[in-house]
Design a protein around this nucleic acid. Sequence first.
DNA 1: ACATTAAGTGATT
DNA 2: AATCACTTAATGT
Length: 226
Amino acid sequence: MNNTAPFIPFDIKCYTKLHEKFEFLFEPELINEICHLGTLKKFEGGQVIMDINQQVTHIPLIVSGSVKIMTEDEEGHELLLYYLELGDTCAITLNCCTSSAKSAIRAVTEESTELLFIPVEQMDTWMTTYKKWRVFVLDSYNTRVMELLKAVDNLAFHNMDDRLKRYLKDKVWVSKSDELNITHYEIANDLNSSRVVISRLMKKLEKEGLIKQGRNRVKILNYTEW
DNA sequence: ACATTAAGTGATT
DNA sequence: AATCACTTAATGT
């Protein structure tokens, strides 16, 4: 038995896991580099992994779970912008990194989530050495801008009950379950609305037969028809 | 049994 | 659609 065996620099299982998860995105050599230079961290649901005005030193890459990205107004009311899932990264953060600016957003884990933090310095070198990294960065930038546009459109052109429906739909999508454990207060907070308004609209949706609800839980009925 | 938290509702702006 | 003020219902200690 080799006595150095327990002291391998990284977890073999984790190593192969990352290869499986990211082979569709990156070159194998790049995944090797990611394994060596990145740090994998696990979070419980509801943890703030990056906050507004925080200095950005690492780029987060989602390995499992999901993260919600939000802004805040002067009074501290939040607004959900979009979610990040497997293989996603936050392009807003990417921009912060290169310009060494501070974060404009807050990132909160939606469920228990694994994140791979890559030091900013790697950005530039990988941009020139790995084609797939370049494509990944540009692509993710693009999809984030699209998501932002969607959020703005939603905010500007749709009333509350529409926004609520979209919210529930998205929520079912990211949680991969039509049974949501959520309170009216939390929904109101994500939508920058008030609990009373959400309660009324939720009651309406229930009467329309679109949802069933109880304390701390909402079940979305026949999701496919949404 | 009591306190706390979530949800429902009428009235007002 | 938001806020207030109040009620009712569910849950934890």
